[in-house]
Design a binder for these strands. Structure first.
Lengths: 192, 192
DNA sequence: TTCATTTCTTAACTTAAGTGAACGAGTTGT
DNA sequence: ACAACTCGTTCACTTAAGTTAAGAAATGAA
């Protein structure tokens, strides 16, 4: 379990055994059941998440409707904006599968960053890389139609289509569930 | 001019005169004319931009059409994804006004980050903050209609509507120029 | 297993965005 | 001043997404 994390981290910085032990000295590994809510709207939080196995999603609730905006699966990290801005959360974070993840605290991170520049380098690289990915994602979203977005998802994250309910996928694609049904029908129609 | 930059930086870390001089020892301030292309599709680059005054935009070209995805104005920083991934750029960056900006090189940043942990802290905080902003932006985009997006823009970045051509705004909002015209007509219609 | 609830799909209708074409206003270059 | 462009808007038409409602399929709990 620790190895999944350290293998991932080794892509960014090389860690000594001592440094690994410092990380392990915090109690960051958690196993959470499907349906567990990790963060609620209105709540203040200092927790960041890194998914080792499973899937978590972020969603807003307005007009009695869930609006799912992101999924985080294996090897993906989420620091909710509210942790950065230190304001109450605008959204919910929940597990859509039994999930194994690390939960780290921003105070703890600040402390470790302070003592070990190497961790700060890791954090910087990770967030730079995530920002770059996010920008490209957003650009693709803006410049394509719902149908193209669905086809794009089929190509890039086919697992999501299997493991996530359609109504959550729909808002992730920026459309209503009924429209997603039609998009799917249209596509299978074309393919025969 | 330097002061604009240092005032901005002081929000994240406090700098000594010596550290400021190190920054100034690199030739980072540039004044560029409207229309200048800072980065072309297919080009490799190590440059990040920070806008002191003016406005730059990022856009893709496909099917002989420009697709504008972002604008960066005063106090906003852009590190194109290609700089992070070290691959040829997918898009163009150009100035839509006479612009005063800093251009920094990722090699130079790596060097300074290495010598002065404080700079690395600055970079980390900046990219964490930008990632959080970007996430919220993307979420808002996903969960709203073109009309709501336009109204949202009107509220949050009214200056853009004045300083940017409509056809660029349109793709920024994920629609065609003709649709933006209609959205605007619809809104002024409602307001009387 | 059965019943209740949730999720997905289909259909009919409404609303808005995409498309192609035309027009006028404003700009640029000669 | 004039021609050539660019840009924003409008129009008519097409296509797709939103909405409302109903029913089928899947899921979960008793």
């Amino acid at each position: 379990m620790e190895n999944i994390l350290f293998d991932f981290m080794s892509k960014y910085v090389s860690l000594t055994e001592e440094e690994k032990n410092i990380i392990l000295s915090f109690d960051i590994f958690h196993s959470v059941k499907k349906g567990t809510i990790l963060l609620k709207e209105g709540q203040k939080s200092k927790s960041s998440y890194f998914v080792l196995k499973g899937c978590i999603r972020t969603y807003y609730v307005s007009d009695n409707e869930e609006k799912t905006t992101a999924f985080y699966t294996e090897m993906e990290a989420l620091t909710p904006p509210c942790v950065i801005t230190q304001t109450p959360s605008e959204y919910y974070v929940s597990c859509i599968e039994d999930t194994l993840l690390t939960i780290s605290n921003s105070d703890m991170e600040a402390e470790v960053n302070d003592k070990f520049p190497k961790f700060e380098t890791l954090c910087r690289k990770l967030s730079e890389e995530n920002l770059a990915k996010q920008q490209i994602n957003f650009d693709e979203f803006k410049t394509s139609s719902p149908e193209q977005r669905y086809l794009n998802l089929l190509e890039k994250r086919p697992d999501l289509i299997q493991r996530v309910p359609q109504y959550q996928l729909a808002s992730y694609l920026g459309i209503k569930p009924e429209s997603l049904s039609r998009v799917r029908a249209r596509i299978t129609e074309k393919n025969k």
